[in-house]
Design a protein around this nucleic acid. Structure first.
Lengths: 334, 334
DNA sequence: TGCCATTAGTAAATCGTTTTACAGAACAAT
DNA sequence: ATTGTTCTGTAAAACGATTTACTAATGGCA
């Protein structure tokens, strides 16, 4: 019942194991007839090269590790899906781990990933700071940090969007539409993107003469809805809300629905990130749309460049992309 | 710059490599002071066992492979997230591949997965039939097939829900609420779950005196919205729609929004599966909720049982779970 | 004391590949 | 005929862990 090894194939084809290896790796030329014989034998036995063995001997590993805070958030899922695609077409496999947004889990998941000795690592950390075990990788393994990173003090290549500008754009748009009392529904201000979006929006609105309030809703939908709900019950309503993430936007919608507050008619809404469900509504949501495919693509290209050119000691490079305002129907002109 | 190996640790700690191995694997007792010395040395060098080497030698592989049709569908993402969790707590790693709902990709992704010689495979195929390379695994590697499988002719353990009953329940509920003209918005009738849901609902409604129509919208949101849209433009409207998947439901909502048709007031709606956004609306959606966590848990338990008890030749076992009706506000009582 | 059982360690074999170092054959150019 | 070069192929070493088989030391018990 054991799987056939390269020796079995070699024996059946009447050649040495080196030749079999050469047939499949293509690193040395092999006569066509021999090639056929080897391929035939492999086929017949159902031979598949053992990755562990080949990785061990060759010291190269066609694997990249990917760490995300959460697999069920479509934003991260899309990034992974893109990465998986590109990796596959480059002959790499991907191993994925989720930190479930917990620092302790993060640390141990990273260690598990590293035991694979991956050729590279693409990581979206759950907090703004770089986990110890990743920092240790400096000069050893190519690393690209994505999304939840502060660009300035990062030791590695980074791919982010200009979250401050994203906040500014939303603030400008809402102000232009006449909104002067705006609530920023943030998730967690410890996350650099959230902090920056908040600052961008806040400063802009205040500068343009409006007033801005910030509320941290956390990353749990229900809880966020409750927090916002009781805030709404005890405060004068804003004319517009800026929902900084998928989940906060859902919290906002939930709290509003519970109180029969209508989107647009009663309170305008701008969401961050663009999910399918945001358009599939009678009042489709105006959003700051992140270029998620580009983010993934950029991260992959950075990583592959590091891996293949061995540009290990070169300066870290930070790529900053931009979110774009997509106007739909959730913002009322006052 | 090379990573330290077990030899380096052994040398630094002044012991043999066997002892180092024993310290970390715990397979043989080691004196406490030696243990400390070894651990210290490992720490100092930043030693991490090379998985490839240990897998190769020990012939066991703490890896399970997971194949899904799509990573960005939250349903599959949740399953993966659950699996990843359980795997991790059992000391396994997970490698994930997506077939992107294409048969040719599926085949090659499976082969890539299998080169890892995983301890087991959990697969959600993209069509109802079992891919060749999975069929070959019979008697070799434990396999659990999930969701898109026809239970009868499957060679492997299966975990599914009773999709026929799911359709029946939706049909009964809608009929009870007085709906007699129902449109079933299906995605792709080749998928066994979809076929079964459709049949269950169709037969029930007809039996209870209503009329049912079936429309296949495919798995692209926009396209589905167009198909449904032109159908709505050219046919007498149903009083209720049963959306069989996440995406079809989004297509339905899009087509309705485009035409200013109100959910519930104009056309009632029952969705299949339960996503966060379905509740975060003023008219929250009534749904058939799949026990997604249970599905993942059951699949994992089956797989682990096969892996650990080596019950390779035992009869395949099929676990059938149930979806539950969650009543919310999208269905009008006529 | 003598004998057996248990414990704690090591040297060396091993897993399935890839790679190195070498060799014979064929052919071209001198 | 000699030399060099290119092509194909092989035997054996190597990768870094685990496991086997063996030894030495310790302790318990008659």
């Amino acid at each position: 019942m054991k799987k056939p090894s390269i020796k079995d194939v070699a024996k059946l084809a009447g050649v040495s194991t080196a030749t079999v290896s050469n047939v499949f790796s293509g690193r040395k030329a092999v006569n066509d007839d021999l090639k056929d014989r080897v391929r035939g034998a492999a086929q017949q036995l159902g031979y598949q090269a053992n990755r562990a063995a080949s990785q061990l001997r060759s010291q190269r590993n066609q694997v990249v590790a990917v760490l995300v805070p959460n697999l069920t958030d479509t934003f991260f899922a899309k990034i992974i899906s893109n990465l998986e695609n590109m990796a596959f077409s480059h002959g790499y496999d991907v191993i994925v781990a989720s930190s479930h947004d917990r620092l302790d889990v993060e640390e141990s998941r990273i260690n598990a990933l590293l035991r694979w000795q991956p050729a590279g690592l693409i990581a979206i950390p759950c907090s703004g700071s770089i986990p110890k075990s990743i920092a240790n990788l400096k000069d050893t393994t190519p690393v690209v940090m994505v999304d939840r990173v502060s660009v300035e003090d990062c030791l590695f290549d980074t791919v982010t969007i200009d979250n401050f500008k994203s906040g500014v754009d939303a603030g400008v748009f809402l102000s232009q539409q006449g909104h002067e009392k705006i609530l920023i529904a943030a998730s967690n201000l410890d996350h650099p993107p959230i902090k920056n979006r908040t600052q961008g929006c806040f400063e802009t609105v205040e500068q343009l003469g409006g007033r801005c309030e910030v509320l941290a809703l956390g990353s749990d939908l229900e809880e966020g809805a409750n927090v916002l709900g009781s805030w709404l019950d005890n405060n004068e309503h804003p004319t517009a809300i800026f929902g900084l993430t998928n989940v906060t936007t859902l919290s906002v919608l939930t709290a509003m629905a519970d109180r029969n507050i209508r989107v647009c008619d009663d309170i305008s809404l701008v969401a961050h990130d663009d999910y399918a469900w945001m358009s599939a509504r009678s009042t489709s949501l105006t959003v700051m749309q992140q270029p998620v495919d580009d983010i993934a693509k950029t991260a992959w290209n950075r990583l592959i460049a590091r891996i293949e050119s061995k540009e290990v000691n070169q300066e870290p490079q930070s790529s900053v992309l931009e979110a774009h305002l997509v106007k739909r129907k959730s913002v009322k002109k006052l």
